[in-house]
Design a protein around this nucleic acid. Structure first.
Lengths: 127, 127
DNA sequence: CAGGATCCAAGTGGATACTG
DNA sequence: CAGTATCCACTTGGATCCTG
């Protein structure tokens, strides 16, 4: 077990980083707001993910005993420590996405003159 | 699709970050060396993970056509851009682990990334 | 409104045997 | 040495319906 392993175990998964990221920009979000912020998430996954984040002390869950019920989620101090890295990751991912997009513009027009070369025959191979 | 999503898709998984991390400390590693560095990985997972990293242009695969065969892996420039953030993650994870250990949650857990400590080179300290 | 409970499909990783 | 090839267990996440 190492730090990298540990970290990925706790903030890996499909939605955790995104939830932390959104909580950082908005400071506090209700359950329904989170649900709308992540349009593709199901209630099961949202609840489950929030529980895990709470168990790991990355977010704070505040329940208001009202009718109708209200629950607010915000970043804990430990969770805030992850923001710089998520930001780095976000920028890197965005850059790569843009790079891929500009490459895809020419896909199928100029680039495809022949068969795609096999992996082993790449220019990197030393003969 | 957002940057965070993209990034996690490409460096998520059980071994990717660890492989990049080790490649950073050692600069270049052969297949067998990586296998020994990550004692719990199977050849199937190691090969598969390396292929994905290569397809995403995060590592460079250099084949020497010798007998016995030799293949060396190293970080690409894009891969190197990920190191600062993996470092952040590593430190955060280590800190959390130590916090938990002092709470006796993980009694007897051995903390290390792989077999060889792979002393941090001076180049790493630059960041 | 903020979940809980099931059931199920897809994806991820492991064990083992074999190869150029 | 550096992988392939199968087969299989487990985990993750999705769909749907229900509730205090």
């Amino acid at each position: 077990m190492c730090g990298v392993d540990y970290a990925f175990k706790h903030i890996g998964g499909k939605y955790k980083a995104r939830i932390l990221w959104h909580l950082n920009s908005t400071k506090v979000l209700r359950y329904g707001e989170l649900s709308r912020t992540l349009p593709d998430i199901t209630t099961k996954m949202l609840t489950q993910t929030l529980r895990e984040l709470e168990d790991d002390n990355l977010i704070i869950r505040k329940v208001y005993h009202e009718v109708p019920p209200r629950v607010e989620y915000s970043l804990s101090d430990t969770g805030k420590e992850l923001i710089p890295f998520i930001k780095h990751l976000h920028n890197w991912g965005k850059k790569q996405l843009e790079k891929e997009q500009s490459e895809n513009k020419y896909k199928g027009t100029i680039m495809s003159c022949g068969k795609t070369p096999a992996r082993q025959s790449s220019a990197l191979a030393v003969h």
